[in-house]
Design a binder for these strands. Sequence first.
DNA 1: CTGTTAGCGCATTCAC
DNA 2: GTGAATGCGCTAACAG
Lengths: 339, 339
Amino acid sequence: MERAAVTVTIYDVAREAGVSMATVSRVVNNNPNVKPQTRKKVFEAIERLGYRPNAVARGLASKKTTTVGVVIPDISNSIFAEVARGIEDIANMYHYNIILCNADKKKEKEIRVINTLLEKQVDGLLFMGGVVTEDHIQAFRTSSVPVVLCGTKDEHQAMPSVDIDHEKAAFDAVNVLIAGGHRHIAMISGTLQDPANGFARYQGYRKALEAAGIPVRDEYVRIGNYRYESGIESTKYFLELDPRPTAIFSANDEMAIGAIHTIQDSGFKVPEDVAVISVDNIRMASMVRPTLTTVAQPMYDIGAVSMRLLTKLMNKEAMDYTQVTLPHEIIYRHSVAQS
Amino acid sequence: MERAAVTVTIYDVAREAGVSMATVSRVVNNNPNVKPQTRKKVFEAIERLGYRPNAVARGLASKKTTTVGVVIPDISNSIFAEVARGIEDIANMYHYNIILCNADKKKEKEIRVINTLLEKQVDGLLFMGGVVTEDHIQAFRTSSVPVVLCGTKDEHQAMPSVDIDHEKAAFDAVNVLIAGGHRHIAMISGTLQDPANGFARYQGYRKALEAAGIPVRDEYVRIGNYRYESGIESTKYFLELDPRPTAIFSANDEMAIGAIHTIQDSGFKVPEDVAVISVDNIRMASMVRPTLTTVAQPMYDIGAVSMRLLTKLMNKEAMDYTQVTLPHEIIYRHSVAQS
DNA sequence: CTGTTAGCGCATTCAC
DNA sequence: GTGAATGCGCTAACAG
């Protein structure tokens, strides 16, 4: 194959192969109505010329790009990496390309990225994590391509989505603590503004306590920002309290790790003095000492299922439901004493 | 703004505004040759119709897509996330969109992704990390768009690239150990097949030892795969040795963390019994106990500088040099005793 | 300042 | 099976 110094088009291939451009188009698109011999001639010409189909022209002519846009709220968050992997595997399976766009957890940038993707005429859109506001929905509406939310949902649950039951996940996590005999359970929460993740997890915490007849104390709840440092900060605060909590439920693993280190740095032991549990199950959870007991989100599956859902939507297949809730699972490790 | 149920084109806007499509095109492209009043009319029509320019058609007509493709070898590697952030900031500054494509650290997939990006007519390509083989270079050559390697280089250093001096970084790291009085220094290396990262870091290790007159022992070197588990495995091996190493140099942070935990789990202390140092400075490095002393790669800058370099290349600006080496820096934390 | 006219590279009828 | 013709939505000369 030669180098394509100047662009070689479908016309060049046609001339080289002694056929019409329509025929070249057919073989490139795997249209069966081509005599095997002709097909061979064309392939040879393609090879000889180093022809590379122009996806832009194809997209314009066919009004399909076979690519789906994925907006990642925060590329440095490892959760999304795993979800992306699930998305990719299924996308490849259905011959879609995926293009990732990072949005740095900025709403304004998310909207911009959605618009860029739509301008690029993606055939579908996957929106990962983050808060879905009216503005997002507006942006989605300006186009007619299907959108599915993965790892989050919109407030009115009107859009197709794939997620876990965050409230139930939190509820289950706190119950592990309660079952272990804990009565003084603090929570490091995410922002309560986020209905899908933040608020739901907080609700799960409250409901678990209430179900066990344990009073909910305001001073046992701190709002963090999902980062390590904020886990440290919240935990320092908890450790000063009287009575000091004997267990901490963190809204995500990263803050939980901050909690563990803070507890240890303060001369206490995990889980003996303070137990820690959280939600996510990122890779790092098994890379702390003690290893972190946490509620695992099926990240890969969330990605895979939402991509599969999207293919159906793009294909206009009939669907009985477009809101799927995947199961979560408690991973018992060593930051909570085994009962 | 209405919803664009059916596609509204530049013609629709032209009709709505009572001008020609050329004029609409001008205002969309910020061409100054439009009377302010006309511009206003057009904008109103755009707003009223909910017009969204079709980037695919634009790309075809202008032969430019104002997007650059970025191939990420491994999306779950946090190093690349930071590099990507640098890339993005500069890309935005120059009004380029970036599309990320993950390649799962599979060479075959890297090549496929490069081709996909090229078919999509990106204006430039950024190739992050990983090994650059002849096949990669072949793929790059089939197109005439500029390519820059970031965080790696090709064997013959023929392609534009932005990277640190890996050998020197390793050399410096090992010297920290030597300066601390260590003579029994083991290394957890990456694959020696990778000239840019793996082999260069190993070379730095050797040279540092040689320069200090310390014999290089084969049993003090283990080849890992850059992952936590492989740090554990290698360290278990080292701990059995006689004489047992008093310090370990790891080719990357993640394996170093595995080393620290293994040392601790075996009843030894870091850094008292065994010191640990590595290269990278990922976020997790400050999230271990003890915190990890490491040689920081300027990840953000690597991304930013390579994107800047790419813009110049795309712009066909004259360049004196296209191979840039950024400085690294030793971050002193607590996994090596302060001298 | 604004309109007209050609393509950009390809998929896709519709004939043959 | 294959070719000729048309147009996807837009930019870019070229006129005026």
